[in-house]
Amino acid sequence: MSTQPAPYPYWRILLCFGLLGGAVGGLLASLLSAIVLSPNDILDFILFSPVFMLTGAVIGLIPALLTALAIVLRRMMLTSWVDYCQLFAIGFGSSALFMLTIIAIDAGIAPHYDPKYMPLQNYDLIPYMGIIGELSAVILGRFTLPKIAKTPISHH
């Protein structure tokens, strides 16, 4: 009987993050918005969650794929809390840098900033997107990354 480790799940990670990363981020954004904006109105959360998830899937596709690519290139596994911290950092970094890039592109296209007409040039969105990205990365990483099983103590 062979005890070779299972091959690293490159495609599972890339597909899961690509297909679900932004949607999970959108669901988290919907939940945070419901808590902050209208904590007593659960109906708004239920009605707007699909819209947030679809928007998140579109907007979050690139940072989710960048996160997955970083994870796959590092061949990350979940062995300790340090790995979760790395997932946090990778998710935050890819999402925050993506938002910064969008703001920079928007500022280059429309250099005369007016917040009323250019809502994308809001630098407050950078940490918000980073937090959403890090939480999404940890949630998806928990389900897709390989875990190292603890070896049982043998009694001989």
Rank of each mutant, 00 (worst) to 15 (best):
D83W: 00
P119W: 07
S136P: 00
S154C: 03
P152G: 09
S80R: 10
F92L: 00
F98I: 03
S94Y: 00
K150R: 06
Q121K: 04
L125H: 14
S136C: 00
W81R: 08
Y113R: 13
I102G: 04
I105P: 01
L97K: 01
I102Q: 11
P115V: 12
K116V: 15
Y123D: 03
I105G: 03
H112Q: 15
V138H: 05
A110N: 15
D114T: 13
S95P: 00
S80F: 05
P127G: 01
T101E: 09
W81A: 10
Y84R: 05
G91Q: 02
D114K: 12
T79K: 09
E134P: 00
M129S: 08
K147V: 14
P146K: 07
M118Y: 15
D106K: 01
S95H: 12
A96Y: 02
M99T: 09
P152T: 11
M129Q: 14
S94W: 00
Q121H: 02
K147T: 11
T101G: 15
A89R: 08
A107S: 13
L97S: 05
D114G: 08
G130K: 06
L140Y: 09
L135G: 13
P111W: 07
Q121P: 04
S95T: 10
I131N: 02
F88Q: 03
C85S: 07
I139F: 08
S95R: 02
I139V: 14
I131K: 02
L125D: 07
A137R: 09
G91L: 04
H112P: 06
M118A: 12
T144D: 11
L87C: 10
I103R: 03
M118Q: 14
H112K: 11
Y117Q: 14
K116Y: 14
L120T: 14
Y84D: 00
M99V: 06
D106T: 06
P146V: 08
L87Y: 00
L87K: 03
G93C: 11
S95E: 01
Y117K: 14
P119V: 13
K116A: 15
A137E: 01
L78S: 04
I105C: 12
V138Y: 11
M77N: 05
T144C: 13
N122V: 07
Y117S: 08
M99D: 03
S80P: 00
W81E: 03
S95N: 11
L135W: 14
I103Q: 08
T144A: 14
V82R: 15
S80Q: 06
G93T: 14
I132L: 13
D124I: 11
Q121D: 04
Q86Y: 05
L100G: 10
T144Y: 12
F92D: 01
G91H: 02
I102C: 13
K147S: 09
I102P: 02
S136G: 01
V138W: 10
Q86C: 11
A107I: 13
L135P: 06
V138L: 15
I102A: 11
T151I: 02
I103T: 03
I139M: 12
G91A: 05
E134I: 01
A107F: 10
I105A: 03
L87F: 04
M77K: 08
E134N: 01
S154T: 07
I153S: 11
I103K: 10
G93S: 15
Y84A: 00
D124E: 06
G130I: 01
R142H: 12
F143M: 07
C85D: 07
S95C: 05
L135T: 13
M77T: 15
T79E: 06
P111N: 12
Y84H: 01
T101R: 06
A96V: 03
L145K: 03
Q86E: 05
